[in-house]
């Protein structure tokens, strides 16, 4: 969905504080994009390397399935931030039918608060899961925490971007 104009209702930054929030979002996005894209490239390479090792050299990698699916989870959950930044988490967009500007903003702000609470709740329960799990990833003989950590990290970043956007949705003047 490269080419889709973000459907987000976040107004473009016109005030100083609003521009600062946008910059923060921009730089976090830079960092997260580089990390997830790097992981993606590594994952493609790993899967291909595993095919070659198995078919060409008959020396299969015992860990390739578990490692690649673990990296996949990191791409997915950390990628939630990048997807939100690009407006790719699509929902029904009919709030424009509300004619009153004030009411519409109130509903949108309320929705944003709800999503912050939801993302924060997911961060919380997955953090507890990490603390309590004893599961192992058998092929690599490492704790499942390495996998599970992708969930709280991803949802914490999602909470963060929702928080950064809340003031702009509720207060910023439409540019």
């Amino acid at each position: 969905m490269t080419d889709v104009v973000p459907q987000t209702l976040v107004p473009p930054p016109t005030q100083g504080w609003s521009r600062a929030l946008e910059r923060a979002e921009f730089w976090i996005d830079r960092l997260v994009s580089v990390l997830t894209v790097g992981t993606l490239v590594f994952m493609v390479g790993l899967v291909f390397y595993a095919v070659v090792m198995r078919y060409v050299f008959s020396a299969p990698l015992v860990y390739s399935y578990d490692l690649s699916t673990m990296l996949f989870a990191w791409i997915v959950f950390v990628g939630l931030f990048v997807a939100e930044r690009d407006g790719a988490h699509i929902g029904l967009d009919i709030l424009y039918l509300i004619k009153s500007e004030g009411l519409r903003r109130a509903v949108i702000a309320l929705r944003q608060v709800f999503m912050i609470a939801l993302a924060a709740y997911m961060t919380y329960i997955s953090t507890v899961l990490i603390l309590r799990t004893g599961m192992q990833i058998s092929s690599m003989r490492i704790s499942a925490r390495w996998l599970y950590a992708s969930l709280p990290v991803g949802f914490a970043l999602l909470t963060l971007i929702y928080l950064l956007r809340l003031p702009r949705l509720a207060l910023a003047k439409q540019g």
Partner: peptide
């Protein structure tokens, strides 16, 4: 022999040490 096993240590070790084959994990 390349022998398909679950990617679990006790199996991979068995194939390597006992059967002297190559443990090959595969769905």
């Amino acid at each position: 022999l390349s022998i398909r096993v679950q990617p679990v240590t006790i199996y991979t070790e068995m194939v390597e040490k006992v059967m002297q084959g190559a443990p090959t994990p595969m769905p």
